[in-house]
Design a binder for these strands. Structure first.
Lengths: 343, 343
DNA sequence: TGTCTGCCGGCAACCGTTTGCATCGACGCT
DNA sequence: AGCGTCGATGCAAACGGTTGCCGGCAGACA
């Protein structure tokens, strides 16, 4: 009749059940329920159900200093690498009773800062950062900052913080060797920004591998981003400056797509005229035209492992930092082939 | 020397600045800052900065009854439709000062319930639901439940709740007419679950369109999900039962991919032997083999509009429910062509 | 019947903010 | 000189829970 009270509080449940509010609290809390007389317990629980009681998470979090939420910041959820990663993280967090606060930064440092600040304000119990630079001031701030932190996909040069990243070194090595094994001798690398760990490590691995193989005609370029447009633009450059290149290892699948597009525009068919190997094996990579040969990184696992690591860090903040390498494997599809015989 | 206090509270700032805690609160709050003497204001702000003060969002939320967070639940973030949608939502929410609590339900009703409950517990100010069934008990519970709600991508049959959905009817119509215009006369529809609004509406539109066009040899099948596997399985069925079909409109792009795969397995090339049109124009749809002819739905806009609608609902909970239709357009690529002449 | 032992459940402080209201001094006006 | 006004700040009560501590009561035991 009167204006309906917005929603029942613990106090309402307690009164309805004829117990003290603290008893009601204990009844509704797994951990403390054992303290109560079974009958009281049941009575409280039933009235709680009857009233449609729902604990106020903020009040609880305020008191317990645990929000049961963790924040994850990715550069761009629209980049196919991230959805499976987010999914992996979310699955393990969910299982641990945590919620996921997600944010895309659009590769904008300022936005990232603001988002992280907002997450910290909302008292996240931990942070999953998937956008670190090799020397990232934000990360250094955060390290001592407060919430447990684990880096995802990219890490920083100086250690000291937990991270879950793909095995960039081994991946790029496999990619280059695959091309070599097919008969390619003039290789190029079109990688992502060197300011990122995966940009730098894949590049270093490529350099080292071609040197080891004794290849002379090689080129290595840095795209401004890990996306299709950057791949296209960088490949334009590559193809004019090094027209004799027959095989290229790309920094990731999106770059590979851009590279293939740039090549096509110059009349170079993939894989007939030029072979390209990607990195990640993103969703649908095998359905593309041509199906992408690539280094498969189990993206779901990256996210899942990162979340697991974070959970253990939340439980024990003094745990030593640890970085886990997720290894990939070459999957051969249609974007690589032996170079033309005449070549 | 002593154990560092975890992190400064408002009280600490107030003491350091030599003012009362309430004054400090007002200084740090845009809305109330004008009440203060400019000098006091500055002094408080400086000491707050100096101490690295960061407001405790939970305490604030508890008091103000506003968490500045909204929850979004999608069936599967890994489905390419959703990342852009989430991105759109996140962008407008961010601009409005809100954070995004995201959750994938894996199309599991139980999980969805739990996730929504968790979100409600954490006092989200609103809910973006992207997994509604046409007759969804969860939605009806939520309607009167508490937080403002807007449905995304899928809606319910009985109105009464705000929603932002693609113009399914017009989309499917255009798809069918496109095939007709190419010369196809034996059409099939492989749609998603009829329990979803887009499953049902696209199907209804298809039925109606082929009837209007006077087509006799038609078939319409329901896949169990909106994914590639379901498309593949359903197409198997379709192709054995209706081998003379030459054009199929798919419930979405993923289904289209599965259909094309199933056809290929029977030696039917797309588009030479069979034309397929998708729905959504997901990321990379144009790079597939073959490039997909599809109905482009601006996925980013769907999310963005939904978030805008939700924001206005948050500001005025008594606002009337409203459903906005996002219209799509046919984009013709390589998966459709005229049927074989002999046909 | 008196004391001891345990089990239950009440008491009240506290988590960190916000905010309506009261206070207080200064100032202008008559 | 008295009074109303007004700007600036302090006071204290919430917001909705959790939890260490304590007291009461029942049963056991002597």
């Amino acid at each position: 009749m009167a204006a309906a009270r917005r929603s029942p509080r613990l106090k309402d449940v307690a009164e309805a059940a004829g117990v003290h509010i603290s008893t009601a609290s204990r009844a509704l809390n797994e951990r403390t329920a054992a303290l109560l007389n079974p009958q009281t317990l049941e009575r409280v629980r039933e009235t709680a159900d009857g009233l449609g009681y729902r604990v106020n998470g903020m009040a609880r979090a305020l008191k317990t200093r645990r929000s049961l939420s963790i924040g994850m910041v990715v550069p761009d959820i629209t980049n196919p690498f991230f959805p499976p990663t987010v999914r992996g993280a979310e699955d393990v967090l969910d299982r641990a009773g945590y919620s996921l606060l997600l944010s895309s930064t659009d590769n904008d440092m300022g936005k990232a800062r603001r988002q992280v600040a907002a997450m910290l304000e909302s008292q996240v119990d931990g942070l999953l950062l998937a956008m670190a630079l090799r020397d990232d001031p934000l990360v250094t701030e955060l390290r001592s900052g407060g919430a447990p932190l684990v880096l995802v996909n990219r890490t920083i040069d100086r250690g000291g913080v937990s991270a879950v990243v793909p095995d960039d070194f081994h991946g790029a090595l496999e990619a280059a060797e695959h091309l070599y094994a097919l008969g390619h001798r003039r290789l190029a690398f079109v990688g992502g920004p060197l300011a990122t760990s995966n940009g730098a490590r894949r590049r270093a691995s490529f350099d080292q591998t071609v040197a080891r193989l004794g290849l002379k005609e090689v080129a290595a370029l840095e795209a401004v981003a890990f996306d299709e447009d950057a791949g296209y633009a960088t490949a334009q450059d590559l193809l004019t400056r090094h027209p004799r290149i027959t095989g290229v290892v790309a920094g990731n699948d999106l770059l590979a797509i851009g590279i293939i597009a740039a090549a096509a525009e110059r009349g170079l068919a993939c894989p007939q005229d030029i072979s390209v190997v990607g990195f990640n094996d993103m969703l649908l990579a095998g359905r593309l035209q041509p199906p992408l040969t690539t280094i498969r990184i189990p993206q779901y696992d990256v996210g899942a492992r990162a979340a697991e690591l974070l959970m253990s860090l939340v439980d024990d903040p003094d745990r030593n930092p640890e970085t886990v390498l997720i290894s990939g494997e070459l999957v051969i599809r249609g974007s690589t082939a032996a170079p033309r015989a005449a070549d």
